[in-house]
Nucleic acid binder design. Structure first.
Lengths: 195, 195
DNA sequence: TCGTATCTACCTTCTAGTAGGGAGTTTGTC
DNA sequence: GACAAACTCCCTACTAGAAGGTAGATACGA
């Protein structure tokens, strides 16, 4: 851990962007070896199997997501701002092609053919994200800055689903702007007040 | 065309369910050959390349979707009923495992690694579906049975995205019921009146 | 000298795709 | 109606390359 970026970090980072592009079956150890500049066998030294690599990759992704949410809550005490910051984060990622999709959302679509250990990690991400969104919506409703039509839980699931669908549409249309077109009415309908 | 179901039909039907399970890179000609009961080479006779097969498969899926929408409009003159019939159709598909995902939605997630000809078909489906939804929302707004917050186009994109995201969540949680949990507030918030 | 990281070399299985042939059916022509 | 050419559909047999993964040697720092 002397280096700022170890080889295994590089492998994970590379694999992540390959998964974002084409899912679990859309990349190979050979692809990673080309990008990172080491041999296939060396990747197996760090991650014995492909399932290991992706499971660890998703676990780390979840940690980062948790950390991101914690930071977001620190900078934005208001629930409405928190929702806006969350959608804004993704709008930026998709806009500048940093990451045009959530790793877990992408893997979720392939669940029937995914190793079980990865499925569990992906599912855990969905649960954590929707739980956080539900708590934000609840606080917003309590403050009167957000208007809920159904239960906070149902609204949170709808919110999360819409954001995921917006990523999909941006990709389908080949137009990052569509993400904003979709999330804007989403915020507006929750009665989110501007500034 | 004497048979009700030709071999190429069977190949397409089989490939469709394999795609729904694991996407473009999640199945092979060998998989199809096992299920359909013919040799790999025979599949190449009907569909020279995998890209051909999937492109034709998606084109047919789009035709069926168009036909389904036309029928749905015939049986349900009211815009609110049309939306409900649309989400209801998918709720049933996901519930009884007929088809737990829209072929185009699944392929859309893999667009960066998909052959261009398939991307165009998938994109066309998204355009057609959102255009239809926009027209339904517009009619509903004109009648006063639906309340739009933004433009019909933006609301239609949001609606479509939410439905796609609901499919994803149902798969992620491994729980078909979540589809209804998500689409219910979606309808409610559009001010869709019951019965 | 132990452990970590990397390498070369290799294995097995799967991948999409091709070559060429056989059986049955259609079609055109006399 | 007879006959041959052409077409359809499926087959066996094969290819080259990519897949995930292993074995064993080497380099090097603590």
């Amino acid at each position: 851990m002397s280096n700022l970026s170890t080889t295994s970090d590089e492998i994970i980072r590379c694999a992540r962007s390959l998964i974002i592009a084409g899912g679990y079956n859309g990349f190979s150890y050979a692809d990673i070896s080309e990008v990172v500049g080491i041999r296939k066998a060396s990747i197996h030294h760090h991650f014995p199997s492909k399932a290991d690599l992706v499971r660890i990759l998703v676990a780390r992704y979840r940690e980062e997501a948790q950390a991101g949410i914690a930071e977001l809550e620190r900078y934005h005490p208001d629930p409405v701002d928190q929702l806006r910051a969350y959608t804004g984060y993704w709008a930026e990622c998709i806009g500048d092609a940093t990451s045009t999709f959530c790793v877990c959302a992408l893997l979720a679509s392939e669940i029937p053919v995914l190793p079980q250990e990865i499925v569990l990690e992906v599912r855990a991400h969905f649960r954590a994200l929707s739980a956080w969104l539900a708590s934000v919506l609840e606080r917003g409703a309590a403050r009167g800055t957000l208007v809920l039509t159904g239960t906070a839980r149902a609204e949170a699931e709808t919110f999360m689903a819409t954001v995921h669908g917006a990523m999909l549409s941006a990709r389908a249309y080949g137009d990052p702007a569509i993400f904003g077109v979709i999330t804007q009415p989403l915020m507006a309908r929750l009665g989110a007040v501007h500034t």
